[in-house]
Each structure stands twice: as C-alpha cells, then as structure tokens.
Design a protein around this nucleic acid. Structure first.
Lengths: 241, 241
DNA sequence: ACCTTATTGTCTTTAATTTAGACAATAAAT
DNA sequence: ATTTATTGTCTAAATTAAAGACAATAAGGT
C-alpha cells in the first residue's frame, strides 16, 4: 500500500487492479493481504501521479507488484458509488487495529486515505504466473494467487470488481486475442482449451475448439512435444505477431 | 460550464457526456459552445460532488443540460492521458480571450479549472430529441445537435471521445436493447431500420432486419399508421418492458 | 516385433443460423 | 377496376456452428 504525499497524486482517485493468472487449470487472481492486524484483503491498488497517464500509472503499479514490465492490461470500468465501503468488514478492521491506527502516524495516514470517498478505475491484467518473479516483486506470503471462485472477502467493492473484470475478460477474449498472455511462450492445444474452460467455467468440444483457435491464424505450430505418455504427442504452438 | 468550489467537488476528475440524438435520419451529438470569445466547443461536462455517486453525477449533468430526468446513460471509458490538451486549439482560445481571462475573476477560475491536469470519465447518453425541452434546459443558440460526421473541433480530446462512444454504442446496441431510447414512444419498423442505418452508417436488408428486430421480442405491435401515402400502411410498434 | 491403449489431428455429416430472393397484402392514386 | 409503392412474411440458398467419425501416433504390455 502506498501513501500519497499531499499533491504528488491526484486526490480521491485510485486504480485497482484485477491481476489474472492461470495455474493448475484454474483461473486465479493475485490478492495481497493488507498490512493490518487480522486477515484483511484488497486488490492491488495505487494512485495516479500528477505527471502520469492513467495507463502508465496502472503499468507502474502492476510492475511494482508483479515485477513484470510488459504486461497486458486494460481498463474495464470505473467504480464511483458514494457507498463503496463494505461496512461490517471495515469496522472489524478498525476494531482490531484501534491502537495501531491511533498511534502510528504512517498507519493513520494510510487509514484515512482508505476511508475517504474514492473513485476507482478498474484495470484487469493478464499475466503468465511463471513470469511473476517473487524476488523482484512484493510478492511473498502476504500475497496469494486465489482461484476466482474462492476469493477471500476484500475491502470496499473489490469482490464486485473481480466479477466485473471477469465478465469483461470473457467478452473481450476472442475479439482481442489476449488469452495467450496467460500462457507460457509455448503450449499445446489442449492447454489452450483447458485455459478457456477455466475462464468460461464450461467445457468446449475438442474438435471444434481446435478449429476455432487455428482459424484465428495467430498461432505458429512448432515441433511436437514428447510427453512420455502412451499416446500421440501433441504439437506445441506459439503465439505469433 | 460549472466552476467548482474548493472542496465541493472531487478535484481533477470530471465527467464528459456524449449525448446522442436521432433526427432526420441522422445520428447527432449535442454540443454546447464555450462561453468564450470565438467559436470554441466542448462536450457537456461537469464535476462530481463529494456526496454523489458518479452515475448520479452524470445524471444530474445531463438533466441540467437537456431537461430530461430519466435518461439512458452508460460510462464507456476513462480518459486520463497526461497530454489531453489540444494545444493549438487551446492557445487560440487563450489568445482571443486574454483580457477576459486576466480580468474577470469568474472566468479566470473557470479557465484554470479547464487547463489543469484532468481525468475524465466518459458517459454516453441516448435521448429522444423531441423530449429535450429547450425551455427547461440550457439549450439555446449556443448549443447544437451536430451530425456525428460533421462535428466541430472541440477542446481537449473530446472529438476522440465521441469516436470511442460511438464505437461502444455500436457494440452494445443489440445486446442491451437500447436503440429505442433514441426514438419516440411509437415508431414504424422502417424508422427503426433507418436509425440503425444511421448509427452503423451502412444499409440493412429490409426483410431480415425486420425479422431480427421482431425476434428480440421486445416490441409490441399497435394499430397501423395511416400515412396517407399510396401504399400499404405500416404498423406502429412500441418498446415494451 | 506386434497388439493394445489413450490422445491428437483432421475430416465428414448434420444442424442451425444468416443472407438472399420472392410474392402476396394493402392504401391511396389513376 | 387498375396501377403504384410499400409493407409483412414466406421460402430457398449460402454460410457457419455443432456433432460424429476415424486415422495417426507414442508408449506399454505381451
């Protein structure tokens, strides 16, 4: 969590990021734990510097969190209701952190920043989890990749944000050819299909799925992958262009 | 143009509205003239009050401008590049208004508000032009409905905003069944088709268009319209639900 | 080696949807 | 009654999507 100086950042405007990754056939979201006593969670957030475009700000925030420079991201919606606060959740946080909030200047400042009226620009990002380097980023035990179906409760309307981000992802995935941002450099067709099945939470017919993806004309076929399994080895593909 | 008090509004955040209307088989956009010497234009804009949700703010701004209370609107994108200013245009404005800006307090304040770094939430609205009552709104000679193909040059990135709004409108129109917000209470199928042709700037096949629209199952068929023309009178339809 | 097994890659067939073509119904004018 | 310009609706053709079928592997087992 970054606390803004008085005029360094645009006031009352933040960026919240839904960072999607894919692992073990599951679509996951990167969620950090808040630096308070108790288990409180929030999407990776940040603020917009005066001399910084909003996409640029989102890119910076994402790099700080994941260590990845060239990241696919897209704004999907602004959240600006007056009552975005998840009251019971916030009150629990306050109760468990009364001392901390009262005594420590830094924490109090951060807390006030959190409880102000805020408008948030939601961005979603697609990341190859294996490229996310824990050493070079803030990722540690306090941060986790959660299956989107089993997210912890987060502050504000952050759970709604994930829903809306996923909805937008589903709408845009074919049109913008962005699914491959979630996969490693090379992959099999089966892996692509399993990714789609994770995203849409439904099965696809293998024969037609393969045709549909190949008809996009964005994949380059490499040599076969020798899996060691007792069956025909699949081809490897790579996203081109 | 409304000038915000010190803390009444969220700072550096604005709402810009692309108000679409339909008249004479043309898709139009409502564009007010700025209150400066010379011909300078800008989308209807406003700011967000501290106690006001962003949709609510957009609704208020639209009502102030058009006089319509129940208006269809939707956010479509945030514009937040650092350099959103149309420099040559703004400098021309400054040159023609040097005195005014220097001397009049109100104008200077407004001017400063305009030239600050701003992040704008773009909303588009769909309006039945005939419902827009000039008396009850700010609409007068300084405001006009312009064919989207022949818009005046506007300040900032407002011309880009219209492009992006139209793009979103085209994507959403079938899915969200919103086209009828541009039409009066009752209309013929031909009028619907002409509206679509104006929005998409391309012809549709009459037979299939009628089937497609009726298959939406959102229209109620009324009695026939007696046009006085030497041919079969068309049915009138009304949007239901 | 040769057959078995589990998958992959691709083709064919079928169903569904979209697009194009055709024509009767109608309201007023001739 | 006939003509004219549309409208409403149907059918046929073309395209696209979904389902089914099967040969081509790459080990494993005998």
């Amino acid at each position: 969590m970054h606390v803004p100086g008085e005029k360094k950042y645009i006031q009352q405007l933040s960026i919240d990021c839904v960072i999607f990754g894919y692992q073990q056939r599951q679509l996951k979201v990167l969620i950090p734990k808040l630096d308070f006593t108790g288990d409180f969670w929030a999407l990776p957030s940040g603020y917009i510097q005066q001399q910084e475009g909003i996409d640029q700000a989102a890119r910076r925030i994402l790099e700080e969190r994941t260590g990845i420079k060239d990241i696919y991201l897209e704004q999907f919606r602004v959240f600006g209701a007056t009552e975005r606060t998840n009251r019971p959740y916030l009150e629990q946080l306050i109760q468990l952190n009364e001392e901390k909030i009262g005594n420590q200047h830094f924490i109090r400042q951060e807390f006030e920043w959190i409880t102000q009226r805020f408008v948030s620009i939601g961005y979603y990002a697609l990341v190859d989890i294996n490229q996310v380097i824990p050493q070079k980023s803030e990722i540690d035990e306090s941060m986790g990749w959660y299956n989107y179906k089993e997210l912890p409760t987060m502050i504000m309307d952050h759970n709604d944000m994930v829903d809306k981000a996923l909805e937008t992802l589903r709408l845009n995935i074919d049109q913008k050819l962005i699914a491959f941002n979630l996969l490693p450099e090379t992959f099999t067709m089966k892996e692509v299909q399993e990714l789609y099945e994770a995203i849409f939470d439904k099965p696809f017919a293998r024969n037609n799925f393969q045709k549909k993806i190949l008809d996009l004309n964005v994949l380059e076929r490499l040599e076969k992958k020798f899996t060691g399994a007792a069956n025909k080895a699949p081809y490897l593909y790579r996203f081109q262009k």
